[in-house]
Amino acid sequence: MSALTIYKREVSSYFAQPTAYAIIVIFLLIVMSLTFTFGGFIPAGDASLASQFFAWHPWVFMFLAPAVGMKLWTDEQRNGTLELLGTFPLSTRSAIIGKFLAAATVWFAALLLTFPIVITVNYLGDPDNGTIISGYLGSFLVCCTFLAITMLVSACTRDQVVCLIVSVAVCFVMVVGGFDPVTTVLSRSVSEGLAEAATAAFVWDHFSTLTRGLFRLQDLIWFGSIIVVCLLGTSAILSAKRS
């Protein structure tokens, strides 16, 4: 119940200020222009959206997801409102869940607003809409993972800029570490095992299977566990800061 109150406050705070709108508009501009230029959406003649549209998402999220999440706990610490929250009759856990879901809602809205591309492929060709939905799920999960990482970082600092830079760096590693060219180099120059470990540990493989319409339990567990670990870590850091 109190998580819901926190959620409502955070969502209205995102949409009462230009933050959410700016980020959503920039996301749409970047993703759409990448899809129609480098993604070769029209010439490819492929209606699955995987390589032309979804493939760009992690690259854009690694910058923009931290921008949405960076204020979550930094602001509370800087303004001292953490003390209010800490003396209200609610658990840290519900505050964390409320805030996380609010940030996720901003991204949910952003992804929903990419709907014209879905209409376009359905008009031009005959895509497998199940694969597209699975792609959207993968994309949303990547986003939530990055938000959870950002939230963990934001609990550590009261400075938004520090939070943004550190979170972007971590997300960058998460994306690049499992990217095909990188794992290929790793397997050639270091060892096959390390390349496999990188593939399993970072975002890319888990994300791309979903964009190809494959539901693997291990991917869902991977996303879920990173999110849960980050949220628990946030709770632990916030409690440790008080004692």
């Binding site: 119940m1 109190s2 109150t5 926190i6 409502k8 406050r9 705070s13 009462a16 200020q17 303004n79 001292g80 409102t81 953490l82 003390e83 209010l84 209200f88 009759p89 609610l90």
Partner: peptide, 21 residues
Amino acid sequence: APLYRDMTVIGFLRFCASIRG
């Protein structure tokens, strides 16, 4: 006296009241 600066006075008090159940 920390406050959520982006809220109105009445909005803030309503938020606190909801948290208080």
